[in-house]
C-alpha cells in the first residue's frame, strides 16, 4: 500500500515535470522513450490522446460561442454599411419604409408596428389559453390526462410554421371574412390568431413547469384550510409561480416577434404604420423574406436593409430572452 502510494506519487511528479515538454514536442516519442521506461511512456501517450480529445470536444462546444459571435458580427457589419447611407434618426423615427422604391424611405417604425401588432394579437390568444391550460394541467388533470396531453402539446410545437401560414391564409381568413366581410385577404388578425394558437403549448408547458415547482407543502397548507382545487390554484399556486409564469409570457413574446412564415404568408408584405389588426402590414421578418425572395445585388442598400432590420429583430428577441431567463432563474432559486 505504502509502496504503491510512493510509486504513484513518483509517476505523477514525473508526468507533471514532463507536461511542459510534451506540450511543446507532442510529436517526439523518441524523447519520451529515451528518458523514461516504456510503461510510463504508454501512460504519457494516453495522456496526450486524452488532451487532444478534450481539445476537439472543446472546439465543438466553442461553436456555440462562435455562432453567436458570427451572428452579431454579420448583423453589425452589414448594418454598418446601411447606416452609412441612412441616419439613425431617420431609421428610428421615420414613418415610411420603402428601401426598394425610387423614392426610398428608411423608417423602421411601420415594420416594428406590424411586428408588435401581430405579436399582441397572438399573446391575447396565447396568454389566457396557455395559462388556463397550464393551471389545468398542473392542478386539475389526473396523472393519466397529463401523460396524454403533454406529448400532444409537444407535437403541436413541432408542426412547421409554414403549415400554420397556409391555415391562416386559406382557412382562418376566409372564416373571419364570413363574420367581417370587409376584412382584407392579408390581415394581421388571422396571422396573429394562428400564431397565438401556435404559442399556446409553449406558454402552457413553461408555466406548468413553474407551477409544478411550487412545493407540495404549500398546496397542503392551502387544502388543510379547507380550500378547493380552484381556490388553491388561484390563491396559492399561481401567485407562488408568478415569476415562472411571467417568464413564460416574455419568452412567448420573443417567439411571436421572431415568427416568420405565418406573418409572411398571411399578414401581407406592405409596410403599414398601423396598430389595427384588421389591416394588412409587413412585419420585420416578413420584410426580410420579401427582400430575400427577390434578386437583390449583394452590398446594395436593399440587401443591407434586411440586416439592419434583422439587427433590430435580434436586439428585440435578445432583450426579451434575457429578461425571461432572469425572471425564470428567480423562481428556480426560490424553491
Amino acid at each position: 500500500m505504502t509502496a504503491s502510494f510512493i510509486g504513484n506519487t513518483l509517476i505523477k511528479s514525473i508526468t507533471l515535470k514532463l507536461k511542459p515538454l510534451m506540450d511543446i514536442a507532442t510529436n517526439s516519442p523518441s524523447l519520451i522513450t529515451t528518458t523514461i521506461s516504456p510503461r510510463l511512456a504508454k501512460n504519457l501517450r494516453r495522456d496526450i490522446k486524452g488532451r487532444v480529445i478534450e481539445f476537439i470536444l472543446m472546439l465543438a462546444a466553442l461553436s456555440a460561442v462562435f455562432t453567436t459571435f458570427a451572428i452579431v458580427a454579420i448583423l453589425l457589419y452589414e448594418s454598418f454599411g446601411f447606416f452609412k447611407t441612412v441616419s439613425l434618426v431617420e431609421f428610428f423615427t421615420g414613418k415610411e419604409w420603402t428601401p426598394l422604391f425610387e423614392d426610398a424611405h428608411y423608417g423602421i417604425m411601420p415594420l416594428v408596428a406590424g411586428t408588435l401588432t401581430t405579436s399582441m394579437v397572438a399573446l391575447a390568444v396565447a396568454v389566457p389559453i396557455g395559462t388556463i391550460g397550464a393551471i389545468y394541467l398542473s392542478e386539475f388533470a389526473s396523472h393519466k390526462t397529463r401523460e396524454i396531453t403533454k406529448p400532444i402539446l409537444e407535437l403541436l410545437v413541432g408542426v412547421p410554421t409554414i403549415a400554420f401560414g397556409y391555415f391562416a391564409l386559406l382557412f382562418v381568413t376566409p372564416l373571419l371574412q364570413k363574420i367581417y366581410p370587409d376584412l382584407p385577404g392579408f390581415n394581421m388578425l388571422s396571422a396573429g390568431l394562428v400564431m397565438g394558437v401556435m404559442i399556446v403549448p409553449y406558454i402552457a408547458s413553461v408555466a406548468e413547469d413553474a407551477m409544478r415547482a411550487v412545493p407540495m407543502s404549500m398546496r397542503e397548507g392551502s387544502y388543510a384550510m379547507g380550500a378547493t382545487r380552484f381556490q388553491t390554484a388561484l390563491r396559492v399556486v399561481t401567485p407562488a409561480a408568478t415569476s415562472g409564469i411571467v417568464a413564460a409570457y416574455i419568452l412567448a413574446i420573443s417567439r411571436a416577434v421572431g415568427e416568420t412564415m405565418v406573418v409572411a404568408v398571411a399578414a401581407g408584405q406592405q409596410p403599414n404604420l398601423t396598430f389595427n389588426p384588421t389591416e394588412g402590414a409587413a412585419t420585420i421578418t416578413a420584410y426580410i423574406v420579401q427582400v430575400a425572395m427577390g434578386d437583390l445585388p449583394h452590398a446594395s442598400i436593399g440587401y443591407q436593409s434586411i440586416f439592419a432590420a434583422g439587427l433590430v429583430l435580434f436586439a428585440m428577441t435578445l432583450g426579451f430572452n434575457i429578461i425571461g431567463h432572469i425572471v425564470r432563474k428567480k423562481y428556480r432559486e426560490q424553491y
Partner: peptide, 25 residues
C-alpha cells in the same frame, strides 16, 4: 458559463436570423 449562456441564447434566436447569418457568412 460563457458557452452555456451562448447555447441557451442561441436556442431563442429566431430562425430567420440564422438565415441572415448564412447569407452574410
Amino acid at each position: 458559463d460563457l458557452i452555456e449562456i451562448n447555447v441557451s441564447n442561441l436556442a431563442g434566436v429566431p430562425s430567420i436570423i440564422y438565415g441572415l447569418l448564412a447569407l452574410g457568412l
